[in-house]
């Protein structure tokens, strides 16, 4: 094959692929988000593996059992596992005492800067503004030291 040396001998084709999706929340997701709408955080539990899943799953990834037991996670039992700053906002991975997994959310800026390990609570939006989405938790904020 002869080499192409002239720029105008090279062609390209421009196009785009527009796609849209509508995702169901799933069996566990539907229940979890409906509870968030009520201002509650719940996790699913596998007793035999001593695991508590947040976000909840309908299965235990360890023993692969179907999970039907759920339990309340107190919204003020969180702590900052790690955080980063994005466009001037603090985004934290919040974990909860005795729970596997965690939730991503905005961390409200306090007088002191964020630190790993500080105790936080979930602050929900006003009831009428909740949609059944993770954003129903408006932010996390530091609880009394």
């Amino acid at each position: 094959m002869e080499r192409i040396t002239e720029g105008d001998q090279i062609r390209r084709w421009n196009d785009h692929i527009p796609l849209q999706w509508k995702y169901t929340a799933g069996v566990a997701g539907e229940r979890f988000l409906q509870l968030l709408k009520q201002g509650k955080i719940q996790a699913s539990v596998c007793r035999s593996c001593n695991k508590t899943y947040l976000p909840p799953k309908i299965f235990c990834k360890e023993c692969f059992a179907q999970l039907s037991e759920w339990r309340d996670v107190p919204s003020d039992s969180g702590y900052v596992y790690s955080f980063t700053a994005v466009n001037g906002e603090i985004i934290a991975l919040v974990k909860f005492d005795g729970v596997d997994g965690g939730l991503l959310g905005r961390l409200r800026k306090g007088r002191e800067g964020p630190r790993i390990g500080i105790k936080v609570k979930a602050v929900f939006r006003r009831k009428e503004d909740r949609k059944g989405a993770l954003s129903d938790i408006e932010y996390f904020e530091r609880t009394g030291v």
Partner: peptide, 18 residues
């Protein structure tokens, strides 16, 4: 049911090749 929607518009420029 609770569903979330997203849209993407992926743009490409494909080299035509030799």
């Amino acid at each position: 049911v609770l569903a979330s929607e997203y849209a993407a518009d992926l743009k490409y420029s494909w080299a035509s090749g030799a």
